[in-house]
Design a protein around this nucleic acid. Sequence first.
DNA 1: TCACCGAGTTAGGTTTGCCAAAAATGTTTA
DNA 2: TAAACATTTTTGGCAAACCTAACTCGGTGA
Lengths: 140, 140
Amino acid sequence: MSKREEEYLETMYILQKNKGVIRVKDIAKALKVKPPSVVDALKKLSEKGLVEYEKYDRILLTEEGRKIAEDTYSKHKLLTQFFVGILGIPPEIAEQDACQFEHYVHEETVKRMMEFAEFIQENCSGVLKQFLKERIEKEK
Amino acid sequence: MSKREEEYLETMYILQKNKGVIRVKDIAKALKVKPPSVVDALKKLSEKGLVEYEKYDRILLTEEGRKIAEDTYSKHKLLTQFFVGILGIPPEIAEQDACQFEHYVHEETVKRMMEFAEFIQENCSGVLKQFLKERIEKEK
DNA sequence: TCACCGAGTTAGGTTTGCCAAAAATGTTTA
DNA sequence: TAAACATTTTTGGCAAACCTAACTCGGTGA
């Protein structure tokens, strides 16, 4: 599984979820590549059994492809939550970082981030609030 | 600057620091590639003015190359510190993650991590200690 | 000093991902 | 329904990184 393949799967998953259908044009737009690159990728992913693809036909993720995409997307969301909710990083930057890190981050790291967030919120949520408040003020 | 180029520069920087000299063989070993790949990379980096390289001669980073390498390496260290010292992630995993994230992470994110670490240590270091202690116990 | 060995280099080839241009297919509308 | 438009696909090519095999260089020991 290359990083790029994961990105294609994740993009398709999100398109499916938001638009109901997956189209070459939309994948291309989301990943900032041209349509021929998308077709190349679809063929490869299809050979690997991660995507159902017949030319000019509708595009679908297979069970296995969807599983990988969901996994990636879930890391994406958890990372973003941590960056924004704990570190107070501006959403756009958090998004950018999550978008890359999601492909490399160890399971254990994500787990710890979640546990840490929970622990802090339970044991010193006041301090956390103060930290976030200060950051937001500095931004002005 | 590609991720891979940064990795070459960082590796060279660390070799320089630890061994005093930079050798093709050692770069290859560190990056798990074969010597010809290193030579390819050195030629490109030299064309970009980031490395001083003449064949069969000693290898050096230029001022500019060193700056990039230091920058990357500093992110590496800060990320590792945060992962280990705040989240309590096992050093090997922290190292792995830092090693990837360092090439993508936004300046702002690293800055926030440092500020957050400082803030927590000053305002609820007891809670942090407890969190880390619990994690270490769970690991057994 | 010179043959040899390890380190470094070159040549030639692979894979992955991307693109532009042109061809094929699908869709919409006059 | 057929022309016009949009989308998708194919073709052919490029660049980044990597590799194996073969060659070159530099230092070492006989």
